[in-house]
Amino acid sequence: MSGLLEVAGLQKRFGAIVVADDVTFSLDSGHCLGMIGPNGAGKSSVFNLIAGTIAPDGGTIRFEGQELGRLPPHLRARRGIVRAFQIPQPFPHLTVYENVLAAASFGAGRSGAGAATAALDVLATMGLAAKAGVLAGQLPLLDRKRLELGKAVASCAKVLLLDEIAAGLTEPEVEELVALVRNLKTSHAIIWIEHIPHALRAVADRIMVLHFGRNVLEGRPADVMTSRLVREIYMGFRADDVA
């Protein structure tokens, strides 16, 4: 096994609460791993562990064959592990262009004209070119989500950690976002936490179910979504009981 990102036996607990219990998976470029599970199952914590904002109690995260250890978040970002937050986190007092330029400068380590060109390319890809000069704080929600993805792409991300980026969007907007993510999948490895089933099914190659910090199930989207276990976890009772 030699995936781009290999997570093995990841452990993390906060006091009595276990947020990651032997989480193991592997991911390659061009693939999208969906991650589902009830609130508090540890999905965001797994992202925090991979992005480096919290340190694991045990287990390993290998990226491009190298153990990440205690590498701080900004250095992981420079290597290519970039997350898009559930609530978009633009730099509100900078313009859309400057937001992406900063990502191209620091995340991707470009400078001068190279950074500027990269930033413009990303804006074009994300459909934000016309809003280059708008302050990021003034963007409507869908554009904020686009910008959030744009920053990640401009950072030359290899692994994109997408945290419920479709939340709060209208149905047609979700469609647009799904198209965007599917487009990004061709050149990135993606882990996508999402509560909207059809969005995940449209993009994910595999889906992993987290429950109390454990990955209890992993498989093809159709199989996972229709599985008895998933229904039990989400409904909170054993499927046999009602049958």
């Binding site: 904002t53 900004h74 997350r83 633009p90 730099f91 007092h93 900078l94 900063a102 920053k151």
Partner: peptide, 22 residues
Amino acid sequence: RVGLGLMTVRDNDVAAASIGVD
């Protein structure tokens, strides 16, 4: 370059780190 980094830090330090700003 430092200035651009500073302004991202001012606006949102968590997001700044996540795009590689020290």
